[in-house]
Design a protein around this nucleic acid. Sequence first.
DNA 1: AGCCGGCGTGGACTTTCGTCCGATGTGCCG
DNA 2: CGGCACATCGGACGAAAGTCCACGCCGGCT
Lengths: 220, 220
Amino acid sequence: MAGVSSPEIRVLVVDDDALVRSALTMMLDGADGIRVAGEATDGDEVPALVDAHAPHVVLMDLRMPRVGGLAATKRLRERPDPPEVVVLTTFDSDENVLHALRAGASGFLLKDTPPAQIVEAVHRVAAGDPMLSPTVTRRLMDQAGADSSDRERARTALRSLSEREYDVAVAIARGRSNAEIAAEAYMSLSTVKAHVSHVLAKLDLENRTQVALLVHDAER
Amino acid sequence: MAGVSSPEIRVLVVDDDALVRSALTMMLDGADGIRVAGEATDGDEVPALVDAHAPHVVLMDLRMPRVGGLAATKRLRERPDPPEVVVLTTFDSDENVLHALRAGASGFLLKDTPPAQIVEAVHRVAAGDPMLSPTVTRRLMDQAGADSSDRERARTALRSLSEREYDVAVAIARGRSNAEIAAEAYMSLSTVKAHVSHVLAKLDLENRTQVALLVHDAER
DNA sequence: AGCCGGCGTGGACTTTCGTCCGATGTGCCG
DNA sequence: CGGCACATCGGACGAAAGTCCACGCCGGCT
């Protein structure tokens, strides 16, 4: 595990709790090619410290006074050549996770993560790979798995449609009216209606809104 | 890293390629509390070997003749007290990943994963934690992130609705007709229509189908 | 107090949707 | 060849969806 390409990974630790900061610094500094280049107690202080030390990785607490970890992360990632961000938090609520990912974090760890894994996370993220807490990974997996089951059913149903019927169903799922569909597909209003009726019958649905929802599920 | 709770993790290696099998067995057997309990060349052989050796983890290739890795995984996970499954494959196409997750795999690794990480994956999965290839993790993260951005916009729009209007919008997103909504919410048909009109105006949409799609996005 | 704006409730009216007839033409399969 | 599914269109009709106007209520603003 020794002898990485870049000789030293510079890390910035951001947390308002002095105890947490020192614990993190102690476990990281000196460990396996990692050096803690600085500490911040607030999202406000981050930009200056990043300017000063150009860290490769920022370990960021989410819950901080004044400028929180989310906002700080978002701003960081808008820079040219931004550092990778690993979010460290106590709770892995859905909200937290999604916002952190959206803000551009490459890592999401719970604070009770064993030290060895935090060290590992820094290495991985510095190498451009993501690193998530097992519980978070599991949640994303479950979500993806559940999604795909809906998809399968919806797709199977849609296979029973003929080509034109399918076109019309897709147009419905874009929110188009029958008149719009007729214009776009160069057919008469009567024809569109006929197709719609067939679609409803074949899919065993009652109205176009249900068609839209089913097609939407199939596509996602 | 030595001294795990269970003294030995039993692994079953399933791959139709003899070279891959021996490579995996060599890197795993004896490594850090892991023992390769058996090898199979086909999904067909898996049940008997699982019965015989009761492995904790099954390393499963996806592309195999006869009974493929997906089907084998699905059947395995339907057993009482099933082993954890780590899918090993050359390609991480969306289809592969989703189907594997849906089949109940707890791990998904590319075959070019460095040996140390494969060993680590076995340990993690045996402990009940998931383990995904970085590229797969990244993809799930991107998907979740993108989803959430749509959600945000949709939710913001929905906040402008009053309580009743919101109720009606949600009912529309369930595919309900105005008459059904009126019955369920104890109001007259006229009232429902009025609410629908207000919803359309506030959300700047043209018809109920578009409402359904927007609400659907907001909820997912 | 008076006024105004949003809300929930409706009725009357217009437009769109969906169904049910009909018809024609095409291509494909047994 | 004779069906059969598909795609196309028309008309007519009932049902559903949407628009418009109106009323009473309530809370805030002047």
